[in-house]
Amino acid sequence: MAEPPLIPRPEGLYCPEGRFYIDPVQPVDRALITHGHADHARAGHGAVMATRQTLEIMAIRYGADFTGTREEAGTEARVNGVKVSFHPAGHVLGSAQIRMEIGGRVVVVSGDYTRAPNPACAPFELVPCDLFVTEATFGLPVFRHPDPLAEVGKLMASLAQFPDRAHLVGSYALGKAQRVIALIRAAGWDRPIYLHGALQRLCDYHIEQGVPLGELRPATIERGNKAQFAGEIILAPPSAFAAKWAQRFPDPVLAFASGWMGVRARARQRMCELPMVISDHCDWPALTRTIRETGASEVWVTHGAEEALVHWCRKQGLAAQPLHLVGYEEEPE
């Protein structure tokens, strides 16, 4: 019996022929990384191959010595005889799907991806394959994400209704914050947007990479002048909402941008007054559409509602299985 092209291991998804892991959650000799979110991109590997932007994002987050050797993914490379190439995933800046030719089959590991337009990164590229490894973060039929511009419209309406209140928008530091800023600009907001310090460096990096974000300012309150943020937009990591930092602003409206805001219990748990359903992952229609369009005859499903998507695939006549990989979060900071 032929050895499978990829094997789930505690360290991550392993390619025996190429002797490398994809997005390993533990230190390994050689890792191929799909994108810079912390549950996919860890420090401490002997060698890391990724897109230039992902390598630079990892250096920003972990320091220049996050790996022994950096290998920038070009248009095509061979890793211990396995032909690999990286293709845009549309998830965050630098995110990629990894295409491999193994044993006469084309295998694509998608990482996290989205089909929705995202001005903060390159758009998703459909890669035909025989075996498609897909995430299932929102892998239930109930998940159908609304128009993100309409969700930002809720923020604009709240600003008009409550001009004396600061509007704090919880946004993850890599990808979500920059996408939300771009959407706010698309909605016509040309005033400064204020940032928690934890978001500043990655926003600066996006600007360096040519992503237009407009005027950004530090969310620094002058002594005794809370009113300076009345009617303003402040972006912060969600963790800041539980700290005294958020209490310094005038009667803040707490908003949170996430695909999970479509689940009312999640919004209540976050004590969120203004939930904005903005996701950097595919919803159910986009997941199933992508699987069809790849032409894959076999689908492996990971991190999310695996069983539901596996069931759908099998009903379509596709060979499918869940991977049950551990260490991947729903939507990491």
Results as ranks from 00 to 15, higher is better:
residue 28 V to F: 12
residue 273 E to R: 08
residue 70 R to S: 07
residue 70 R to G: 06
residue 211 V to N: 05
residue 132 F to W: 15
residue 233 I to C: 02
residue 289 R to I: 15
residue 46 G to N: 12
residue 204 D to H: 12
residue 209 Q to C: 09
residue 202 L to I: 14
residue 196 H to I: 02
residue 3 E to N: 08
residue 152 V to Y: 07
residue 331 E to L: 13
residue 12 G to K: 00
residue 323 L to G: 01
residue 315 K to A: 10
residue 258 S to D: 09
residue 287 L to S: 01
residue 98 I to Q: 08
residue 162 F to S: 07
residue 145 H to G: 00
residue 308 A to P: 15
residue 238 P to Q: 13
residue 284 W to N: 02
residue 203 C to V: 08
residue 291 I to E: 03
residue 42 R to I: 15
residue 195 L to R: 03
residue 54 T to P: 04
residue 194 Y to H: 02
residue 241 F to S: 05
residue 128 P to G: 06
residue 62 Y to C: 08
residue 25 V to S: 13
residue 47 A to R: 05
residue 115 R to F: 14
residue 209 Q to K: 11
residue 318 L to K: 04
residue 152 V to E: 03
residue 115 R to D: 11
residue 286 A to D: 13
residue 164 D to G: 14
residue 215 E to P: 14
residue 267 A to V: 04
residue 332 P to K: 08
residue 204 D to A: 06
residue 198 A to V: 00
residue 134 T to Y: 09
residue 24 P to C: 04
residue 243 A to V: 14
residue 130 D to P: 02
residue 160 A to H: 13
residue 202 L to H: 10
residue 132 F to D: 03
residue 96 A to H: 10
residue 61 R to A: 11
residue 19 R to F: 12
residue 14 Y to R: 02
residue 5 P to R: 00
residue 84 V to L: 15
residue 40 H to D: 07
residue 197 G to S: 12
residue 56 E to C: 07
residue 295 G to F: 14
residue 134 T to E: 05
residue 158 S to V: 14
residue 227 A to M: 06
residue 98 I to F: 11
residue 302 T to N: 10
residue 111 G to Q: 01
residue 214 G to W: 00
residue 104 G to T: 05
residue 29 D to C: 08
residue 233 I to F: 12
residue 149 L to P: 10
residue 113 Y to I: 12
residue 96 A to L: 11
residue 156 M to L: 14
residue 13 L to K: 00
residue 301 V to H: 06
residue 165 R to G: 01
residue 145 H to A: 08
residue 245 W to V: 11
residue 135 E to N: 06
residue 4 P to W: 09
residue 19 R to G: 11
residue 83 K to R: 14
residue 222 E to L: 13
residue 331 E to Y: 14
residue 46 G to R: 11
residue 148 P to E: 08
residue 176 K to G: 10
residue 158 S to F: 13
residue 166 A to F: 12
